[in-house]
Each structure stands twice: as C-alpha cells, then as structure tokens.
Nucleic acid binder design. Structure first.
Length: 308
DNA sequence: TGACAGGGGGTGT
DNA sequence: ACACCCCCTGTC
C-alpha cells in the first residue's frame, strides 16, 4: 500500500523574533556543528526538525527568516522555533557581556558572525548527537543521525524530498535496538556507547530529566558517568541541549584556536578549559561558539586558497 | 574511474 | 600513549 499523501504545508511566514541575517550565518547557526538534523531540500531550503516537529527555513529577499511547516504543526510555531533558535528575549544582547572590549580576537569573531546564537535543543537528542561525534566531521554525524532516524525513529506525517520524514529514535526506542542494528547505522565503535547508555537510561527512569535540571557541575558529572561521554561531549550536551552557557567544550578546533590566537601552545584540553572559563567568564560557552565558527571558516578559506 | 592512504569536533584502557 | 570503527576527502 502506498504511503498516504503528505498533508499540505503552510505558506511561508516571517519569524518576527529573528533579526535579518545572511545565508552563510543561517547555515552556521543550524548546520555549523551544534545540530545535526538540517539538510537542504530540492529547492535549496533548509529542512530539519527536533522531537516531533519538522519545518523548512529560508531567508526572504530582505534577509528575514521565514518558515513553513506541516499545517498540523502550525499552532506550535513560531514559539517552539524561537526557543530552539535561541531567540528568546532572555538571550538577547548576551554577547555584550563577553570581554570583547579587552580581547581583539574575540571582537573579530563577534563581528564575523553577528547574531550567532546557542541553540536550545532537546536534551536527549543532543546527547545522542554528540555521542556520535567522536572523531567525526559534521557531514558524517549527520549521516548517522539520518540513518538512525530512518531506521529506528517513528515516521512523521509528511515527506521531505519525496521521502517520509522520521524523528530521531527516543532513548526508550534505542534501548530496544541491538548493538548490531546500531552498527548498521555507520556508528562504528560508537554503537556500543549508545547501546550501553540506552540500557542505562531505560533502567533509570527520570535520570535524564534530573540531569537536565541539575546544577551545571552536578549535571556534567552525571553525564560523564555515561558510557562514551567525556568532558567534551558532556559540555556540548549542556551547552546546546540545556542552555548552560558556562559550559566550555574543548575540541581540537578550540585547542587550535586558543593555541594560535592566545598563545596557548602545548596546553592540554583541561588547561584550555580552565583558561576559557577564567578568561571568557560565565558565558564562556557563547564565546566558544564564536571562536569555533571563526576558526572553521579560517581553515576552510585557507584550504581553498591552498588548492590551485 | 578507481584505488588508496590519511585523518577525523573523543573516550576508555 | 594507543586502540577503537569506518566514512569522507584529497590524491595519484
């Protein structure tokens, strides 16, 4: 039996809470390593989602962010989208509290990516994404997420590029999935981490919710007790999935960025993290995202130049 | 066009 | 320090 036809999508509507932006900044915002579920559709729009929500995004000719969603989801938008994109009023103007006045490099980064926000994603989905991230690039992590969703996540009631759209599997669903089936989603050695974490979460109802609510230090300690979660992954989950802007994930990009821009050659991740918290303050995670974006762009520009 | 390294947004031992 | 898995990318 053929799938039922996809219901209609709403007309494109402006999201009033989003300041005008540029295509490259929108790409950095939703596809720059905070989230792994956004892709282009046949028309070049962004398509993505979280939980049971999915929608399309594009900029209108004035650079205003517009969205279109399956009609059934319309009542829950734009509030959910505003929160997801980190555009709630409480998050406005936070960059001004960063020490850019005394840090010329940070000032450059802020200027290069005006309006960049920390996303506010579902906690459990963020954990899944970053459990997959070890020694993987964004494109590969997105591939794992897409396979996990297609094979183990519930289909939602609409199609993207002619394919039914699936939400990510819940942790309860992952607990029912064999490690071999996870491996088949190109997870490699990460399959065991996810399998073990899923079993643990299934055996400890409420544990994830309590972790999300806990104070930063306690939440990080709890996350680090999970299989496959170290300091870097824990900080990513807390930053991008719980709005903890004090979390300062140190990955190889940040290691390189601080070595090069702040003279921290040879410093170890833990030392760099300590420097970050001391130098950038309680919003260190926000600063981190700007440094990260800046360093990635610099690397891609120099590699493009290096080619003939 | 097709192999073939090399390396990749870490964690665990 | 290394292994872990294995896909992507650049290169020949």
């Amino acid at each position: 039996m053929p799938p039922s036809p996809a219901p209609g999508w709403t007309a494109w509507a402006v999201l009033p809470s989003a300041p005008p932006t540029r295509p490259d900044l929108l790409a950095e915002q939703i596809d720059g390593g905070q989230a792994f579920r956004w892709q282009r559709d046949d028309a070049g729009n962004w398509v993505g989602g979280w939980n049971d929500l999915a929608l399309r995004l594009r900029l209108d000719p004035h650079g205003r962010l517009t969205y279109s969603a399956p009609v059934a989801l319309q009542p829950r938008l734009p509030a959910a989208l505003t929160t997801y994109l980190g555009l709630d009023p409480a998050n406005s103007g936070l960059t001004d509290a960063l020490p850019w006045r005394s840090d010329a490099h940070l000032a450059d980064c802020l200027e290069a990516f005006p309006g960049l926000r920390i996303l506010r994603q579902p906690f459990g989905e963020t954990l899944l994404g970053f459990l997959c991230s070890a020694t993987k690039q964004i494109v590969q992590i997105k591939q794992m997420m897409a396979l996990l969703a297609r094979r183990h996540g519930a289909p939602l009631d609409f199609a993207v590029n002619g394919e039914p759209w699936h939400r990510l599997p819940t942790w309860a669903e992952l607990a029912q999935t064999s490690e071999a089936d996870l491996r088949a989603c190109l997870l490699g050695f990460r399959a065991r981490y996810i399998h073990q974490t899923a079993r643990f979460l299934a055996a400890n109802p409420g544990w994830l919710e309590a972790t999300e609510q806990a104070p930063y230090a306690e939440a990080k300690e709890r996350l680090c007790s999970l299989s496959g979660v170290g300091e870097k992954v824990a900080d990513c989950v807390l930053l991008f999935g719980a709005g903890r802007l004090e979390a300062f994930p140190v990955d190889t990009w940040i290691l390189k960025a601080l070595a090069r821009r702040y003279g921290l050659d040879g410093w170890k991740p833990g030392q760099v993290a300590q420097f970050g918290r001391a130098h950038f303050g309680p919003l260190a995670g926000l600063a981190q995202q700007y440094l990260f974006a800046y360093e990635r762009r610099a690397a891609s520009e120099s590699s493009r130049q290096g080619k003939k």
